[in-house]
Simulated scan of single mutants.
Amino acid sequence: MTLQQPGALGAKMIGEGFGGSVLCLVKKPFALPFIEQLETNYLQKFGFSSTLYSIHMSNGVSILA
């Protein structure tokens, strides 16, 4: 379902032991339509809404001083 959406680059299941989550990598211009479509698809398939978080990648941990 997710990888068929425009702008989707990849997806991975994470945190399966705590209810499960999916980490999706999406091109920035496609992010909002991707989220909206995912919410719609999830509600139709499972009958309740999901919780989605939009994040951006960074350089990670580094020494600042």
Rank of each mutant, 00 (worst) to 15 (best):
G20S: 01
S50Y: 11
N41W: 06
G10D: 14
L43N: 14
K45E: 15
G17M: 06
M1R: 07
M57Y: 05
G19R: 00
K28P: 13
I63P: 03
P29R: 10
L23T: 04
H56G: 03
S62P: 10
L52H: 08
G47S: 02
I55F: 11
A65V: 08
K28C: 15
M13N: 15
F46G: 00
G60A: 01
S58Q: 02
N41M: 09
L25R: 10
L9Q: 05
E36Y: 00
I55Q: 07
L3K: 09
S54E: 15
F48G: 01
P6D: 02
H56C: 05
G60T: 02
S50L: 09
Q44W: 02
L32H: 12
L3I: 04
F46H: 14
T2F: 15
L32P: 11
K12Q: 10
T51H: 11
Q37W: 14
E39N: 13
H56V: 11
N59D: 13
Y53H: 13
S50P: 02
L43K: 08
P6W: 08
C24F: 11
E36G: 05
A8H: 04
C24S: 04
Y42C: 02
K12E: 12
I55L: 14
P6S: 00
L23P: 00
S49L: 11
A31S: 07
